[in-house]
Computed example of a mutant assay.
Amino acid sequence: MNTIKQLSTLTSRIVKQNLTSSDTIITTVLTPIFMLLFFVYVMGDSILVHGVSTGRSAYLAYALPGFLLMAMAMGSAYTALRINNDKVKGFMTRLLSMPTKRWVILGAHILASTIFMLISVITVLITGIILGYRPQASLTDLGLFLLLIVVFAIVITVVAIPFSLTAKDFNGAGSFSYLLIFLLFISPAFIPVAGMAKPIRFFAENQPMTPIVATTKALLNGSFTFSANSTLLSIGWLLGLLLVFSYFSFKRYQQVFVNI
Rank of each mutant, 00 (worst) to 15 (best):
I26Y: 09
V15Y: 11
F257Y: 15
S22F: 12
S234K: 13
S249Q: 12
T54N: 13
V40L: 10
L19I: 08
V15T: 04
G222I: 13
F226M: 15
L131K: 06
T210D: 00
S53L: 12
L142P: 07
L60A: 05
I186P: 00
L219R: 00
I83C: 03
I26C: 03
L148K: 05
T231D: 07
I154K: 04
S230G: 02
S57N: 12
A204H: 02
V159C: 06
G240T: 15
L139S: 11
G107C: 09
S246C: 09
T54H: 09
S234H: 04
T24H: 09
A204C: 10
F91E: 03
L106I: 13
K251W: 14
G128I: 01
L148S: 09
G44P: 02
I126F: 14
A63K: 03
G240H: 12
V213F: 01
L19G: 04
H50Q: 14
L96Y: 10
L180E: 00
I115R: 07
F182R: 01
G66V: 00
V193M: 06
L131G: 08
Q207Y: 06
T93P: 02
L19W: 13
F116P: 01
L10D: 06
F250W: 15
R252P: 04
P32W: 06
L239K: 05
G132N: 10
V150H: 02
I126M: 15
Y178S: 13
T210K: 00
P135K: 04
F163Y: 14
D45N: 07
V42K: 05
K198H: 07
L239C: 14
F202S: 12
V213Y: 01
S113T: 13
A173K: 01
Q6C: 10
I130N: 06
A218V: 03
V40M: 05
S138W: 08
I14S: 05
I212G: 02
M72H: 12
T140C: 09
L111P: 03
M35G: 03
R201H: 07
R94Y: 10
A218I: 02
D86C: 09
H109R: 02
F190V: 08
I105F: 08
T140N: 13
Y78F: 15
N206K: 14
I212S: 02
Y62A: 02
L37W: 10
A189W: 01
R82C: 04
T114K: 04
F182P: 00
A77I: 06
F226T: 01
L111N: 03
T28P: 03
L68V: 09
S8T: 15
R201A: 10
R201W: 01
L147A: 12
S175F: 08
P192L: 15
T140Y: 12
L36M: 09
Y178V: 04
Y178C: 00
V15M: 12
I186Q: 00
A77L: 12
K168F: 00
A167K: 04
P135Y: 15
M92P: 02
S187W: 00
G222H: 14
N85R: 14
T127G: 03
A214N: 07
L148M: 14
L241N: 01
V104E: 03
S97Y: 06
L131W: 10
L60T: 05
F34W: 14
G107S: 11
I129E: 07
L183D: 00
V150M: 06
H50L: 08
T215K: 00
I122L: 13
A63G: 06
L118T: 07
I156H: 03
A214S: 13
D169G: 15
V193P: 03
